[in-house]
Write a protein that binds this DNA or RNA. Structure first.
Lengths: 192, 192
DNA sequence: CAGTTAGTTCAGAAACCTTTGAAATTCATA
DNA sequence: TATGAATTTCAAAGGTTTCTGAACTAACTG
């Protein structure tokens, strides 16, 4: 890695490289992402080669991968035919992209698999038991992805509100139930 | 793999083996987990060797890994000193365990890293810019983990309610705001 | 059109991870 | 304390992924 990068930037890049394996990306991809994220301006492939000290071909392939995941954006500067790259600078946008990619790669295939498996009529008690377990798992994943599909439509501000609220949401729900109960008892005289 | 397993069970196991690489676990670990999850009774190591056709030592190491992640439970049967293994059968419990493990392995190290990096005073404008970017990322992760820490304390039923509610929570919030506003305007005659 | 620059592809080298069989360890029981 | 069943450890084989350099295509420039 280029030694003239500020030390905090160096360790940021190294950290992302190391975490890469835990996140399912490789070292170079992690490092390039970190470099682009922290860089104050878009970089071209050769900038990255110089900054990280990896091969040109590795940079080319890694950028391709990051682009396919929508984690980096391609930019062009006037009078320069090189490709420049940045990360989206809104961290909430990055979060959405990450979540979407993870769901697509890590959840959706299993969801389809379970859906298919649950279509088949069980041939014997052993298969019936297996299906029952798969049904539990399927129901859970459906519930989670349903929530996600719902929540991902929220604008950032509302999403932030929802996060800030956290577990207190259920308190709020109770309150609302009481109010509704009160309202309906006023109208038709029975509890809900 | 043992051919006398019901075909749906076989494909379930194979699916988990294949997905393993996307989930950051290896094939054997994925298969063992799937087998234990779907099995109607606890299995011992040799059962697993027979069912999956992998080596005894591989099973031993994979079980160790699953145990370290709290994804399988060790059981003992009377008058049998072999170790038997199951998965917790409440899928919500499994979800909690998975979430906790992922947070610990994939988020916490980065959170600590960022915290540390933000303690240092920036030595120049470049470092100040790097810190600003890290601060954005840190704030986002704090918000997410804060929400998670909060929500994970909910009992399953409330958690399910919250999920079912999804994005409608914010509608609810508005409603509540109106009610509060109404209440306070009744009391002190001004809008909020 | 020849030279230059940007970007891609790909075979093989290097690094890394997974799996195995054999040897070592543990531990209840004779 | 000897036996043997259950389990773990570990070096090495086997497999997969990552990375590189060299060869390639495409597009611009004089």
């Amino acid at each position: 890695m280029r030694p003239d990068l500020p030390p905090p930037v160096q360790s940021f890049i190294l950290h992302f490289g190391e975490m890469g394996s835990r996140w399912g990306i490789n070292r170079t991809v992690g490092q390039i992402y970190a470099l682009l994220y922290i860089s104050p301006r878009p970089l071209c492939a050769d900038d990255i080669v110089e900054a990280l000290g990896v091969s040109r071909s590795n940079v080319s392939m890694s950028l391709r991968e990051l682009q396919s995941w929508n984690l980096v954006l391609l930019r062009h500067l006037p009078d320069d035919r090189r490709d420049f790259f940045t990360t989206p600078d809104d961290v909430w946008q990055i979060l959405r992209t990450l979540a979407e990619g993870r769901k697509r790669r890590e959840i959706d295939p299993t969801l389809s698999f379970l859906r298919e498996a649950l279509m088949e009529p069980p041939a014997n008690p052993a298969e019936a038991h297996a299906q029952a377990k798969m049904r539990d798992m399927h129901a859970l994943i459906e519930q989670l992805t349903g929530w996600y599909d719902d929540v991902k439509t929220l604008e950032t501000e509302r999403l932030a509100t929802l996060l800030a609220l956290g577990a207190r949401v259920t308190k709020l729900l109770e309150t609302k139930d009481k109010i509704v109960a009160l309202g309906s008892s006023k109208r038709d005289g029975r509890k809900t």
